[in-house]
Design a protein around this nucleic acid. Structure first.
Lengths: 188, 188
DNA sequence: ACGATACGATACGGTTCCGTATCGAAACTG
DNA sequence: CAGTTTCGATACGGAACCGTATCGTATCGT
């Protein structure tokens, strides 16, 4: 028996992600379509996963990108880095897939948990950068960290996952968001 | 011939919204289920709409809430009002339904257009409040209006549609978001 | 080289939903 | 009140997919 994962496993998961990235919805995704795409018999899939949900959870785990590493120099620059990483994955398919998962995350506790497991480390990183800024005096002492995280990540998620503000340039948006939140809108 | 909409139309659309609000996804929604729920024959539905998509678009139009009216006194208070209305609809079913539509809006130009038609008046309202603030000197003269709108609406959408930050109280969030964006996070 | 295993393909019965057709009852029309 | 239309219900053939079973082949360990 080989200790490496059989090639079929890989093909099945890749086919799943490909189909999702091509626009198939989670529930429109059929085992038969995955099997055909992977060049695999249906039975091979059922031999490994009890059903579509389990396969999907395994496939989505592959999308988890790397967590960025703040430099620790400037709070502003670290925030730009982290905000730029919101909703940003190495796998280009992720950008297409993630919006389709919104209903699933709202419905299924398993998907919600998977989602939380992926983003919580990044949230913790941003939390620490904000606390560091408060400690060093770069940020207001009375800052509400949770609300500030929402201010920073909300606009990026809206842009990356929902693509709802066509007029915003995604490349420079992280800088604009961070600077906007840092400086505030009120005249002085 | 009566000039009022037949009662069947209403029952069909209500049944559609009810089923969606109960957690059915857009594509899991079947004409047969709608017909049964509405106490109507399938043929009655096909007599009025060519298919599921057209029915769905008509049904979703019903969810469009009223556009809030800024008072024009304080820019801050007007923003709190508008931000509080983001993702907020009169019909309580809307809160359940909207997250399920994210994939549809990304996929179908029709749904995207419908969505834009609903939110664009509200966005325009917020744009005008921000411009008024710049004019009266309440807001910075060099404010990027589009980015600021993203800062204000992004966090609320994340909270209302994805229910992402469980620790944030949704009732006071609009105030916190507006004040956070207005005042900025940088110490001074 | 050979026996065990895992594989791809395919067939199967069962289920759900599609979109159409039909039919008697009920509701309008004049 | 009779004629016409619309309705709810139901039946139908077709399609897609489920999860299982089977079968001949290719791969792998020894």
């Amino acid at each position: 028996m080989s200790d490496m994962t059989s090639a079929a496993d890989e093909a099945i998961i890749e086919a799943t992600l490909d189909l999702l990235a091509e626009g198939s919805t989670v529930e429109a995704l059929s085992i038969e379509a995955i099997a055909t795409r992977a060049g695999v018999g249906k039975a091979t899939i059922y031999r490994r996963w009890p059903g579509k949900d389990a396969l999907l959870l395994d496939a989505l785990r592959r999308l988890k990108g790397i967590v960025p590493q703040p430099t620790g120099h400037s709070v502003r620059d670290d925030l730009v880095l982290l905000v730029g990483a919101v909703g940003h994955n190495i796998d280009p398919r992720a950008a297409k897939i993630m919006p389709c998962l919104v209903p699933e995350v709202n419905r299924s506790p398993d998907h919600f948990q998977l989602y939380q497991n992926i983003i919580e480390p990044r949230r913790q990183l941003m939390r620490e950068v904000l606390r560091r800024g408060i400690r060093t005096g770069e940020l207001r002492a009375d800052l509400d960290v949770e609300v500030t995280m929402a201010l920073l990540t909300g606009p990026m998620l809206m842009q990356r996952m929902l693509r709802w503000h066509p007029e915003l340039d995604e490349r420079i948006l992280p800088e604009k968001v961070v600077d906007g939140v840092l400086e505030g809108s009120r005249a002085r």
